[in-house]
């Protein structure tokens, strides 16, 4: 997409996520705004194979090699602050403790390369809060194993990501909007993750030192045929309400609004920029 479009939103954003083929845009944005928090995911590697997840350190090593190959090819290793290592993977409930172990192995392997990861990338409305709480061992481990430091000297930690629906202020509606707008289980699911961690382990999600990021967030499904559902003004209201709610709850450090770019059948919010952010 045009770098000029990215430049037009830089005054209004603190973070930017990109996927495969957007590395050039990310690099351009980071050059202009070095304190921008940049997140990258490469869709050429969506999630581990079952045998990689369940395969102990050898499985994690193989998956790390697959990730490193595409990140190197995309030329983003010196651009992104965080790499999301999987996307919307549905696994059995009993595998979540294994996901914690796997994430520790990956955090160790990639951390040794100076790479910070976001594990999870969970689908909106997933996982079950108890499943999320099974990542506790990863959180504890990550808190004790920073990956270098930020320019201000504070330690940098591995993190976790999930995908959410956005919040809209009461009264902002559209005939075409999805019925689950503002649903606490989809927009506010992080509060249930937090409750499960407190009930099971006596600590809050916010006690975890690494970033908790909503790396995909929209006020709908995010398909192209939803393009006319919200006006620019309504989207601006949604951005502000979401930022207000997330900041007030203090559990999520940032969010990436889905989506900018003309790819496949995904919604392209370019016509609403920079207005929906300003």
């Amino acid at each position: 997409m045009p770098d000029a479009l990215i430049e037009s939103v830089l005054p209004y954003i603190g973070t930017l996520k990109g996927v495969t083929l957007t590395g050039g845009n990310l690099r351009h944005a980071k050059t202009i705004k070095p304190d921008l928090l940049v997140v990258y995911r490469d869709y050429r590697v969506e999630h581990p194979a079952d045998f990689e997840l369940l395969g102990g350190r050898g499985g994690a090593r193989q998956y790390a090699d697959r990730l490193l190959a595409v990140w190197t090819d995309a030329n983003v290793l010196d651009v992104a602050d965080y790499f999301e290592i999987m996307n919307e993977w549905k696994i059995p409930s009993s595998w979540y403790p294994r996901l914690a172990e796997f994430s520790i192995c990956l955090g160790e392997i990639l951390g040794n390369e100076g790479i910070s990861i976001l594990t999870g990338g969970f689908f909106p409305g997933m996982p079950e809060p108890e499943e999320f709480a099974a990542l506790y061992e990863y959180f504890r481990w990550a808190d004790g194993h920073p990956v270098g430091a930020w320019p201000d000297g504070s330690p940098k930690y591995h993190g976790v990501s999930f995908h959410l629906a956005g919040f809209m202020p009461p009264g902002v509606t559209s005939p075409g909007m999805i019925p689950w707008i503002n649903d606490p289980w989809i927009a506010g699911r992080y509060t249930f993750f937090d409750q499960a961690l407190r009930l099971r382990h006596g600590c809050s999600l916010r006690d975890f030192r690494g970033p908790k990021l909503a790396t995909e967030l929209y006020w709908g499904y995010g398909f192209a045929d939803e393009a006319g559902v919200w006006t620019t003004g309504q989207l601006r209201a949604g951005v502000r309400e979401t930022a207000r709610r997330l900041s007030e709850d203090g559990l999520v450090d940032g969010f990436h609004i889905w989506s900018v770019g003309q790819v496949a059948n995904w919604i392209d919010l370019s016509p609403h920029l920079p207005g929906m952010l300003s």
Binding site: M1, I6, V9, Y12, I13, G14, T15, L16, K17, G18, V19, T22, N25, L26, D35, L36, L37, D81, W150, P151, D152, S154, P155, K156, Q195, R198, L199, G202, C203, S204, R206, D207, R209, P211, T215, E216, L217, V239, T242, A243, L246, S247, G250, V252, D253, G254, F255, H256, I257, W258, S259, V260, G261, V263, W266, L269, L273, L277
Partner: peptide, 30 residues
């Protein structure tokens, strides 16, 4: 603040690195 009887501490706020204490607003480039 306490919830379900468990006091929780917040020793790591405020800001660290690029994190401001408020939710960072951003875009997803696809």
């Amino acid at each position: 603040m306490t919830t379900v009887g468990i006091p929780y501490v917040d020793p790591f706020r405020p800001a660290r690195g690029p994190f401001t204490g408020s939710a960072l607003v951003g875009l997803h480039l696809t």
